[in-house]
Simulated scan of single mutants.
Amino acid sequence: MKIGLAPTNSDYGPATADMAVEAEQRGYDSLWVGEHSHIPASRQTVHPDGGDLPQLYWHMRDPFVSLATAAAATSKIKLAMGVCLVLEHEILDLAKSVATLDEVSDGRLLFGVGVGWNREELANVSNVPWAQRYNAMRETVAALRLLWTEHEASYSGEFVNFAPSWVYPKPTQRPGPPVLVGCRGRIGMRHVAEYADGWCPLDVGFRDVRVGMERFRTAAESAGRDPDGIPISMYCYASPDAEKLELYRELGVERIVLAAPDGAERLARYVDRNQHLVDTFAD
């Protein structure tokens, strides 16, 4: 099993490059960072876990800049977006940023994508209706793949449109970095099954992880795909232990991403406390 590490990447935490170096030295296969360009100060959307919104959400560093610094400081570890909120980006600029990051990291990028959970955040930067966000993400991913592979690409859709254009560089990975969809609901699973290179669920998203895995396999088979051919990188928010990781491995999870707590001291203790899991389970 592969083991990834996901620090909160807040501006009051350790430098992303330093975390990447430490994670590489400790045996992690990947470093994951999330994205929130902003958080509306006045909002109606409730945080998925309930309660007050943690301050880390509006203190996240830019993921592209963060992973670029990590790429310069490391040589082996995968660098992962977990996840990029693709609907909050202009498509041509996004294609260039992703391709450039894949280039400067020598093809080590894992491109996780998602639609987010905050209605007001999306409304601030996009005209995509909330109910159509997954359909808009489908078009966005399709357009990105064209831009990464074709010299002159164009796209005409309901949500994504651009005239024939040249966008370079192209990613080092061909036909592009793996696109991993982060979601935990039935609609998201259908999209994973339709076009994703991998699935990024949360282990706290189901009453029973086994049930979630079975739903995913059913969705993949219904889409005519082999579920074993769609790698799963599961975010582990529940307290990790050997029994839990063994269960996830038996269920076919390829990678566990340890979701570290906020704050430098808590992060350091978390990494030390769970090093035995990396030593035991990491490929």
Results as ranks from 00 to 15, higher is better:
Ile3Tyr: 04
Gly4Leu: 01
Gly4Lys: 00
Pro7Ala: 07
Val21Phe: 03
Val21His: 10
Val21Leu: 03
Glu22Tyr: 13
Tyr28Cys: 06
Val33Ala: 01
Ser37Asp: 12
Ser37Gly: 15
Arg43Ala: 14
Val46Thr: 13
His47Ala: 11
Pro48Tyr: 06
Gly51Val: 10
Leu53Pro: 00
Leu56Ala: 12
Tyr57Ala: 06
His59Arg: 15
Arg61Tyr: 11
Arg61Val: 09
Arg61Asp: 09
Phe64Thr: 11
Val65Gly: 11
Lys76Ile: 10
Ile77Tyr: 05
Lys78Arg: 06
Leu79Tyr: 07
Ala80Trp: 00
Cys84Val: 13
Cys84Ile: 03
Cys84Glu: 04
Asp93Gln: 13
Leu94Glu: 03
Leu94Lys: 03
Ser97Gly: 03
Ser97Asn: 09
Ala99Pro: 01
Thr100Ser: 08
Gly107Cys: 09
Gly107Phe: 04
Arg108Asn: 01
Leu109Tyr: 05
Val113Gly: 02
Glu120Arg: 06
Glu121Asn: 12
Glu121Leu: 08
Val125Leu: 11
Ser126Asp: 02
Ser126Glu: 02
Asn127Gln: 15
Tyr134Gln: 15
Met137Val: 01
Arg138Leu: 11
Glu139Phe: 02
Leu144Phe: 01
Leu144Ser: 01
Leu147Tyr: 03
Ser154Ile: 02
Ser154Leu: 02
Val160Trp: 06
Asn161Gln: 12
Ala163Gly: 10
Pro164Lys: 05
Val167Asn: 04
Tyr168Ile: 14
Lys170Leu: 05
Thr172His: 08
Arg174Ala: 15
Gly176Pro: 01
Pro177Asn: 09
Pro177Lys: 05
Leu180Val: 08
Leu180Phe: 08
Val181Arg: 00
Gly185Arg: 08
Gly185Leu: 02
Arg186Gln: 14
Gly188Gln: 05
Arg190Phe: 05
His191Cys: 07
His191Gly: 07
Val192Gln: 00
Ala193Leu: 14
Gly198Leu: 04
Trp199Asn: 02
Cys200Val: 14
Leu202Arg: 09
Phe206Ser: 11
Glu214Met: 03
Thr218Pro: 01
Ala219Tyr: 00
Arg225Met: 08
Asp228His: 09
Gly229Glu: 14
Ile230Val: 11
Pro231Cys: 15
Ser233Ile: 04
Met234Gln: 04
Tyr235Glu: 11
Cys236Gln: 14
Pro240Lys: 02
Leu247Ile: 05
Arg249Phe: 13
Arg249Asn: 12
Glu250Ser: 13
Glu250Gly: 08
Gly252Cys: 06
Val253Trp: 02
Ile256Glu: 12
Val257Glu: 00
Leu258Thr: 03
Leu258Glu: 01
Ala259Gly: 10
Glu265Asp: 11
Arg266Lys: 12
Arg269Lys: 11
Arg273Thr: 07
Leu277Met: 12
Ala282Asp: 02
Asp283Met: 09
